[in-house]
């Protein structure tokens, strides 16, 4: 078996694990509720619509930036409410990374603070297209 003295088990950060677990669960629940509510509304107002998703010819969804999506949701448009829920869902793992940053900083684990910042920068690049 493994020699315990050779590999001392590092302390788990159970407080951080609990925070991250709760954050992920709440984020998914909130996103699913918003998507579900928008979805029911969408089915009520557009259930009889004959959609055509066979090709990308019309350029896809117009709801492709955060300002457009939020404006639509404030105007109570069903598709924008669903898309807002999807934004909340995408934000959930991103927030998890932000909270990890605080957790590693509290442990004074600067190597992992740096690694977490790199991941946040990569995420920022991926999400930068949603600004306008």
């Amino acid at each position: 078996m493994t020699d315990e003295q050779h590999t001392p088990p590092p302390d788990r950060d159970e407080a951080l694990e609990a925070v991250l677990g709760n954050l992920l669960r709440i984020g998914v629940i909130v996103a699913a509720v918003v998507v579900g509510a928008g979805g029911v509304y969408l089915l009520i107002i557009r259930g009889g619509w004959i959609p055509d998703f066979r090709s990308f010819q019309d350029g896809g969804s117009p709801l492709r930036s955060i300002p457009l999506i939020l404006r639509g949701a404030f105007e109570f448009r069903a598709d924008a409410i669903v898309q807002t829920g999807l934004l909340l869902l995408i934000a959930t793992p991103v927030l998890r990374v932000v909270f990890s940053l605080f957790g590693f900083a509290r442990q004074r684990d600067w190597l992992y603070v740096a690694l977490t910042l790199i991941v946040l920068c990569v995420l920022a690049v991926g999400l930068s297209g949603l600004q306008t």
Binding site: P51, F56, G59, S61, L63, G126, G129
Partner: peptide, 15 residues
């Protein structure tokens, strides 16, 4: 984020 910005994520299908 890239998929939404390109219009690939359609709320009617993703829901």
């Amino acid at each position: 984020g890239i998929y939404i910005a390109r219009g690939y994520i359609v709320p009617e299908l993703a829901m």
